[in-house]
Structure formats: structure tokens, C-alpha cells
Design a protein around this nucleic acid. Structure first.
Lengths: 217, 217
DNA sequence: ACCTGAACACCGTTCAAGT
DNA sequence: ACCTGAACACCGTTCAAGT
């Protein structure tokens, strides 16, 4: 008499996410997730092949919550900003997922759906072939890098080398830069960097050559 | 009769790097590094507080090898390209260091020396205060993200979802983008993305307003 | 001081067994 | 079929002991 499955992938992912949110990446263990569900550790292996697959399920859960529908902003650059904001919002509501994101990203369908929408925006803006590949990859690189930098903290974070107590003779420019850093909010930093990239994209955009055309690319 | 120290931080880092290069990030254990040195595992703890500090030593070794002297390129954008190329070259000669880089970056002096030089270039280009913070952070985000993306492989890497066998009806743009992806080399991808960012920087540069001035930022 | 080996508290996962 | 518990091969690290 086969017992019915007591778990759905969704419930598993939700339990894993609860553990992750509560105990951080280091606390995410098969044992902890099983305990969260009130099951034996080995029961998980009936639903998931190994720990790696559990992480994938978790990443899918986070990225799957991202709205990837086409934004309605009139400007294509604003459309992209909106999409970036959406991932950022979702990821930052589960900060501990950041370290898992990279390893699972290319296997997660949610990541692909996001890319599909962004690539669609780029195509509509006139980016074809290799231009679109480079543009999409560039955006992805920036978003991934910026999320990681945000997660692992700014230079002011606790560590051997804090930007505050920097030897001015050895790092004069950084000492000065660090002094201004506290006046820039996390949002300004993230969006400011994205604006730089979008400004570069606009400069090389075939459909919308901007105010001056390609500057350096 | 105190025995003399048999190890220097350099030798320790070199041994750890040898293990990392040979066995990858998963193979980097205290036991393996000790074996590499022909010592007992616990002997390492005389030179390093814990595993985290060993990783820092390792990251320092890699980043410390990066030439951070001011490049001689006439254009400031080319100066930055040169500096980015230098980190990239060093990191990619030890690919397995990529996952460790993020967690240790803000504690590594090598990272700070690199930032100091880049910040100096930006300052000379007229970037002050918050502008310089955003520019530096943007560059760092891109470099970190692009290195990680390169390391964890493109969408064509082995995984449940490969861009090759993509359902064309669900991901039409990505299927098309993927077809073009194989015509773009890793170098073109990395440098192309950087060019976009630099083009954006040039557009907002106070000293060199480019051909049109700020486009969107 | 410097180094060692046993031991402890964890992991992910295999295996044999229970319903 | 689904679930359990003991066991195995790993980790990083503590501790007591050797020179």
C-alpha cells in the first residue's frame, strides 16, 4: 500500500527558504530542512537527489517570485531599470540566497525568464547578434556583481582593513573616496552604477543613438 | 628550547594555492594543505587562526600578484582597461579562487591597492565625491560579476536548462541570442561589457564630456 | 615555542530495515 | 512507495600531550 507523497517541491523549497532566512547560508543543512518539516533527514532524498538540487529548488523559489512581465515604461532603458529593480527587491528580501545564486543561476528557469524579457527589450531597442549578447551579458554581470558586493558589505564592513582607518599616505585617494562613501545610499550606489551601464548602452544603441553616438565602444 | 618557525605566510599561501589549483575549491581543506606541507593538520593553526584566515592568505597571494602601478596609456579609459585586464589575468590563472574572492575581497590589501589606483584615475578624470564612489563601485561590480559569470560558465554550460535546446516558443529571443552567443569569444564578451560601462563613464565625465554629455544618468 | 594525535561536534550520503 | 535510524567518510576545531 503506497503511502501518498507528503511533500511537494513547493513545500520543500519553502522550508529550505525558512531555514535560510532564519539561520543563514551556513545553517542550511539537510538536517535542518528536515527538522523544519518534521521529517527524518533521509526523507528529503525521496524528493531531491542531493543537496545541490535542494539549493536549486530554493533559488528557483526566489527567482520564480520575480515578475518578468514586460514593463510599461515608455523608455527602453527604464524598462530595464524596472526589471533590475524587481530582481533586486526579491533577492534582497532573502539576502542569504546571494551566495547560492551564482552556482544555481544558469540552471534556474526563473533566471532564463528574466533574461528573455531583458533580451526582448534589447532587441526592440535595435540590439542584434553579438551586440545583444554583449549587452545582456554586461547587464547580468553588473547585477550579479552589485548584488554580491551589497551582500558582502561595503569597504566599511568589519574586517582587517576598514576604509575608515586607512593610512592616508598609502591610500590617499581611497581615504578621500571613503569619506564621501557614507553620503551615498545603497540605492544611489546600485542605481548609479546601472545608469552608467545604461548610458553606455544608449550610446551604442542602433535604434536610439542618443545625443552623440558611440563614445568608445 | 623553542623550535624555529618552519613556515612563512608565503609558503603557507603557496601550499594552499597549489591545493586549490590541483583539487579545486572543494578540495581545499586544512587537512589537504597540511599534507601538502608535510605537516600535521593542527600545525597550521600555529600560523593561522582558522580556515577563514587561510583563505584570506590565499586571496592575498593572488591579488598581491596583480600589478597595480599606474598604467601609461594616454587615455584614462584605457588606463582602467589595463588595470582590469591585469586582475582578470591573475584571477583566471587560478580560476578556483573566484568563489573565495568575494568573501575575502574587502579584507585583502591587494584589493585596496587596486582600488586606490583606479580611484586615482577616476579623480584625474574629474570624478569627485559621490560621482567617484558610484563610478568605482560600478566598475568593481562589473568586474566581480563578469569574473563570476565566466567562472560559473555561460548558459551553454552543463545544466538542466541549456540555451541550445531551448523551447523556441517560450524563449524565442533567448534562443536567437544563444545562437549568436557562440560567435562571441570570452574576451569580446568581457571587454565589450567593460566598454559599455566605460562609455557610460565617459558620457558623465566632467573633465571629458565626450561627444554629447550625460545621456541618462 | 612548536608540533602531534586523539577526540568532538558537525556535515552529506549509503544502506538495511520498517510500514 | 514512502519513511526511518544507524553507520560511514568526511569536515573544522579543541584539548592534552610530547619535544
Amino acid at each position: 500500500m503506497p503511502r501518498p507523497r507528503s511533500l511537494t517541491p513547493d513545500r520543500l523549497a519553502a522550508a529550505a527558504l525558512a531555514v535560510l532566512d532564519r539561520d543563514g547560508a551556513a545553517g542550511l543543512t539537510m538536517r535542518a530542512v528536515a527538522a523544519e518539516l518534521g521529517m527524518s533527514t533521509m526523507a528529503l532524498y525521496r524528493y531531491v537527489e542531493d543537496r545541490d538540487q535542494l539549493e536549486l529548488l530554493l533559488v528557483e523559489a526566489v527567482l520564480g517570485a520575480v515578475d518578468t512581465s514586460m514593463p510599461t515604461d515608455p523608455e527602453w532603458t527604464d524598462k530595464i531599470k524596472t526589471l533590475v529593480d524587481r530582481v533586486r527587491m526579491e533577492v534582497e528580501s532573502h539576502p542569504a540566497v546571494v551566495p547560492l545564486l551564482l552556482r544555481q543561476r544558469h540552471r534556474a528557469v526563473g533566471s532564463l525568464r528574466w533574461s528573455e524579457t531583458v533580451a526582448g527589450i534589447l532587441r526592440a531597442a535595435g540590439f542584434d547578434g553579438a551586440r545583444r549578447v554583449v549587452a545582456l551579458r554586461g547587464l547580468l554581470s553588473y547585477v550579479v556583481g552589485a548584488l554580491q558586493l551589497e551582500h558582502y558589505g561595503p569597504l566599511s564592513a568589519p574586517g582587517t582593513v576598514t576604509i575608515a582607518g586607512l593610512p592616508r599616505d598609502e591610500f590617499p585617494v581611497m581615504a578621500d573616496t571613503g569619506a564621501h562613501a557614507r553620503t551615498v545610499s545603497r540605492d544611489d550606489e546600485f542605481r548609479g552604477g546601472l545608469d552608467l551601464l545604461l548610458s553606455g548602452l544608449q550610446a551604442v544603441s542602433p535604434a536610439d543613438p542618443g545625443s552623440g553616438g558611440p563614445a568608445s565602444a
